[in-house]
Design a protein around this nucleic acid. Structure first.
Lengths: 300, 300
DNA sequence: CCGGATATACTCACTTCGAGTATAAAAGGA
DNA sequence: TCCTTTTATACTCGAAGTGAGTATATCCGG
C-alpha cells in the first residue's frame, strides 16, 4: 500500500463570548485564523492543538472538536512535495480579558458575517444580499429553478423560515454567486470582512457547527463563567445563534434539562430585581446526550 | 509558516443494506476497510474518493461525507518522513450484487459489533460484555464512579435507556477495558471480529454517524432501490439502527415528512396484502433539513 | 371460503411546545 | 415616601406532536 505525501497544518476556530458578542481568535489583526504545522512531537492532533493553544493564549481550552479536513484549496503548495492538507478544529474558550486587548486578537463573528446576526431583526444588509442573489439566479436560466430553491431554503425566503444553522450554506451560495471575496481583492461590492485564503469559510464551518451543537449538547457552558444568571446564559445563546429567544420558554427548557443548579447567591448588578446565580452541574452530566430518539421505537 | 510533512491516506466506510442486513465493503476477506493513498491527481479529497470507488466497485456512490481525520494511531510510519494522516469517509451505496460474491467483499456490520444488533432483543453477548465491564469498573477504585457513569450511559444500564447512537462510545469503553482486540492477537476472550489496525474503530465511527444522521436527514433513501414499500423502508432503518420500530408510528412519521410519494403500483411479493410502492421525491427535497429549531424563538 | 399473513387506517391519552400574562424585587427620581 | 422603571421569576392555556394500541383491508393457500 503506497502512501501519498503531503504537508499538514492545523487551523483553529477558537471562540468565546464576551459582552454578549461572539468572538473568534485571530492573527494578523483579524485577517487570518491561528494555524501551525502539525509537529511530529505531538501525541495526537487533538493533544497537539490543545498544547499549542495553551502556550499561545494562556487560556485553557475547554472544549475541542475536529471540524473538517480540507485539501481542495485554491492555494496548493507549489513545490514538488505534494499539496497541503488542513485539519481544522473548533475550540471553546472562557475569555476573560477585555476584547481587543492582549496578545491574541479577538474579533466579532459578525464582522465577517454581518448578515448572520438577527438579534435586532433581520439586518439591512440582507436585502442587498438577496437582491444580488436574485440576479445570480436569473443569470443562468438552465439552473434557475435549482438555484432558487437553494437560496430560498438557505435564506428563509419564499415560505421557508430563517434557520440559523445554515450559515455555511449561505456563505457557499454567496461565494458561488461572487458576493464574497476570499483573498482581499475587492471587486465591486462584497459583504463582510474577508480573511486570508479560505479562513473565512473555515470560520463559517465552525459557527455553523457550534450553532447546531448547542441544541443537543450542553456546550454553551464551556463559554460561561463559573456562576451566571439565566439571563446571561440566554444572552450567550442568543449571541451564538444570532437570534432572540422567548424568555419564559428558554427558562423552562433549561430547567427541565436539569443541567444547572442554584448556587444560593444572587446578583443585583443588572438594574432590576436581583437574579439568582446558577452553576453548571459538571460531574453529574459529563456524558449526556440531550437528543431524544426521534425514531418511533416499539416494545420488545 | 512552516508546514509539517506527512503521509496521507484515504479510508472509506462504504455501506449498503441487502436482505435486511447492513453491510460494509471490505478488502482482505473482511479484515480491512478499503483505503488508498491520497493522489496528487485528484481535484479534491471527495472527488478522489468518489472516482476511486467507482473504478473499484462499479457501483456509483450516492452519498459521501467526511468522517474523521486520525493521526494518533499506534502504527505510525516508521521511516523518517513523518507520520500517517488518515482521512476517513462514509459512503452509501445501493448494493445490487448478492452478498459475499463479486470482487469487493461485503460483510455484515454485526459480525464486527454483535452487541449492536437489538432487533431480536438485547443480544446474549451483552450480558457477557457488561459483566466484564463491571470487573473493569471495580478494578480501579479511584475512577470507579466515573467509569460506572460512562458504562451505564453507553450501555443503557442503571436507569438509562439503550441509545443506538452511542456505538462509538461503547466500542471505546470496551477498548479501554481490553475487551476488544485490534491487531488480531486474541488474548483471552474478546468480542466481535477484529480488523487491521484501527479499521474497526473507523467502522464504529461510520456506523454511529449514520445512525445519528438518519434521524434528521433523508439519507436512508440513498440505500433504497428506486421504488420500495414502506415495510422495506422500515426494515432498512431497523437494520441500520439495530432496533425494531413501531409500524403505525413509523408510517405516520414518514408521511408527515412528505419525503416520498406513491408510484401508483403495488407489489404482492410479500405474502399478504399487496403493498403500495413509493419513490423518494428527489428534486423537491435536495436541500431539506428535518431538524426543528429546538430553541424557543421569540417573535420580532 | 376461511385462516394466516401482511398492509393500511384510525383513535386516544399524554407530553411537549409556542405564546402570552401575571407577580416579585430591586433602583431611582418626584 | 411612593411611584415608575427595570429586570427576574412564576403560572396558564391551547395547539401540536408523540407513544401505544386497535380496527379494517386484501392477498395467498388450503
Amino acid at each position: 500500500m503506497t502512501i501519498g505525501l503531503a504537508h499538514a497544518e492545523l487551523i483553529a476556530v477558537l471562540s468565546a463570548v464576551t459582552g454578549d458578542e461572539p468572538r473568534v481568535m485571530t492573527v494578523r489583526s483579524g485577517d487570518a485564523l491561528p494555524s501551525g504545522p502539525f509537529e511530529l512531537g505531538h501525541r495526537s492532533l487533538q493533544a497537539g492543538l490543545r498544547e499549542w493553544v495553551r502556550d499561545q493564549t494562556g487560556h485553557p481550552l475547554g472544549y475541542l472538536e475536529q471540524l473538517y479536513t480540507f485539501a481542495d484549496r485554491d492555494r496548493t503548495h507549489e513545490d514538488a512535495e505534494g499539496r497541503t492538507i488542513s485539519i481544522s478544529y473548533l475550540g471553546l474558550v472562557r475569555e476573560q480579558a477585555a476584547p481587543g486587548a492582549g496578545k491574541p486578537g479577538w474579533h466579532g463573528w459578525y464582522e465577517y458575517f454581518p448578515w448572520e446576526d438577527h438579534r435586532r431583526g433581520g439586518p439591512d444588509i440582507l436585502a442587498d444580499i438577496t437582491g444580488r442573489l436574485e440576479g445570480w439566479i436569473a443569470s443562468e436560466p438552465a439552473r434557475r429553478e435549482h438555484r432558487q430553491r437553494r437560496v430560498d431554503f438557505a435564506f428563509g425566503l419564499g415560505g421557508a423560515v430563517w434557520n440559523e444553522d445554515l450559515g455555511l450554506q449561505r456563505y457557499e451560495l454567496m461565494y458561488e454567486a461572487g458576493l464574497v471575496t476570499e483573498a482581499g481583492c475587492p471587486p465591486a461590492k462584497s459583504f463582510g470582512r474577508s480573511m486570508f485564503a479560505d479562513h473565512r469559510r473555515i470560520l463559517a464551518t465552525g459557527i455553523a457547527r457550534l450553532r447546531a451543537k448547542i441544541k443537543y449538547r450542553p456546550v454553551v457552558f464551556e463559554l460561561m463563567p463559573e456562576s451566571f444568571t439565566l439571563s446571561q446564559l440566554q444572552r450567550t445563546v442568543e449571541a451564538l445563534a444570532g437570534l432572540t429567544l422567548h424568555k419564559p420558554n428558554f427558562r423552562r427548557l433549561i430547567d427541565q434539562q436539569e443541567l444547572i443548579e442554584e448556587t444560593g447567591e444572587a446578583t443585583s448588578e443588572t438594574g432590576g430585581r436581583p437574579a439568582k446565580l446558577f452553576r453548571y452541574r459538571h460531574a453529574v452530566l459529563e456524558e449526556r446526550a440531550l437528543s431524544g430518539s426521534k425514531l418511533p421505537l416499539s416494545r420488545n
